[in-house]
Simulated assay, not measured.
Amino acid sequence: MKVIQKTVLGVAGLALLGGAAPAYAAGSQQVQDVQVQAAPKYKILKNLSYSGPGNMPLRLGYYNKSKDAGFGWTKIKNKHNITKYSAVQALTKSPNRKKVPKSKASYSLTAYAGKYKCSRGVCRLVKQYKVTATVNEEHKGGSKYKFGVVTEHIIGPERAPNWVTKSLVKLNKKGGRAATAQKVNGESLVGSYKPLTKTVKANKAAAADLDYRGSYKLMK
């Protein structure tokens, strides 16, 4: 009986991490039940571009508010209000990638999103957030896939303002190129690989394309 239990758990472990389970008899209902019950939260929603080796899986994950526990897309969206896959990919592509101290295969990645207020062609920085993501490169249970994105959030409030997602989506689309233009009047979200100055001059011609932007470096 112990041998059978270990076999079932081993198959379930592979299913959890997207690995291929060995072929067992079709009548093994116990194995099938374990796979169905355990696998959904480990489903890979998308393989994201990654500044480290290979790609980085974004799994469905889960979030339990009462226990403040979870990981993956469900936690990122429901707890931290980052609401687009591409906003997560903006972080996994970040060149600011560092090993998490004392971890086996976890890395942190960072970016920045900032808000400018523009008037008469001059834009002043009024708000910025540092955004951080944690990923795990470990291949667990013999899976060919990494564990993937653990979480992503801003440093500050638990839930990011909606404009942070918009900024990161634009950052992912533009590849993090420096923003040099703003709206002549109104609010603009801007970022860059280089530190942003507190005040920038607006560029009316390019403003429409650069309303939202994220940054991988601190805005000053």
Rank of each mutant, 00 (worst) to 15 (best):
L17A: 08
I4T: 09
L14K: 15
K77M: 01
V31P: 08
Q182Y: 12
V164K: 08
A39H: 08
I4R: 14
Y112S: 04
Y85E: 12
G61A: 01
Y129P: 02
K79D: 05
A12E: 12
V88N: 07
P195M: 01
L109V: 08
T134Y: 09
Y193L: 00
A105M: 08
T7H: 11
R59I: 03
A105F: 07
G18I: 04
V184Q: 11
N185D: 15
L45D: 05
N47Q: 14
L58I: 04
A90D: 06
K144F: 10
G141M: 09
G70K: 00
Y50M: 03
Y42M: 07
G61K: 03
V150A: 11
G10K: 10
A23K: 11
P53Q: 07
G121T: 08
P157H: 09
V11L: 13
P40M: 06
P157N: 13
A39Q: 14
N136E: 09
T74N: 08
A69S: 11
S143P: 03
K217S: 13
K194G: 06
N96C: 03
P157Q: 11
F147Y: 12
K183H: 15
S188Y: 11
N185Q: 06
E137D: 15
P195A: 06
V122P: 05
Y116V: 02
S66Q: 14
H139T: 11
V126L: 05
A38M: 15
L196D: 05
W73Q: 06
S106C: 14
N81A: 13
E137V: 09
K173N: 12
S192G: 01
A12F: 06
A87Y: 04
V200Y: 02
Y212W: 12
D68M: 04
Y193D: 06
K144S: 15
K220D: 01
N162L: 09
G141R: 04
A178W: 05
